[in-house]
């Protein structure tokens, strides 16, 4: 019974703080996406000729996002029956968009007019696949000005 109460408290903490952080993060992501919308990012550019450019440079944006107890609990339960892990969909979505934004913001500061050959990689920072999971997302691309 005591264990159950501890789990419930951890779930409440995880959900409370986790969903608050997620709301704040999405708010910030949407604002910054709007502000950086004028610079196109695209995936082509590898083994293709780049658009006419005076200068190019590599830009890397990387972010580490931690899961929370609620998300991990939901994942553990989901592992029993299989299916979509809803709570991790938003976590990975935030990670990808944040990494892209960091790359883009740096490129814009440099004066990029567009970003070509953009790639995204994800890795999980977990302890042997056990316990709480953090994800790292890295986005990189070629800035052109």
């Amino acid at each position: 019974m005591g264990d159950l109460i501890v789990v419930l408290i951890l779930l409440a903490i995880g959900y409370g703080f986790g969903s608050y952080a997620e709301r704040q993060h999405y708010k910030s992501i949407r604002e910054r996406e709007k502000a950086t919308l004028h610079v196109p990012i695209m995936t082509f550019g590898a083994k293709q000729s780049l658009p006419p450019a005076k200068e190019t440079a590599l830009f890397v944006g990387s972010v580490v996002v931690a899961s929370d107890y609620f998300k991990t609990f939901a994942l553990a339960l989901r592992n029993l029956v299989g299916g979509r892990v809803l709570s991790y969909e938003s976590l990975l979505d935030r990670g990808r968009r944040e990494a892209l934004l960091r790359m883009k913001e740096e490129a814009i500061a440099w004066g990029a007019t567009e970003l070509a050959n953009v790639r995204i990689n994800t890795s999980s920072l977990s302890q042997g696949g056990q316990g709480m999971i953090s994800i790292e997302v890295i986005a990189y691309g070629t800035g052109i000005r």
Partner: peptide
């Protein structure tokens, strides 16, 4: 990329 289901509802069913 994000399923528009409330996480608590989803966990409840799960």
């Amino acid at each position: 990329n994000v399923t528009p289901t409330h996480p608590l509802v989803n966990l409840g069913y799960l």
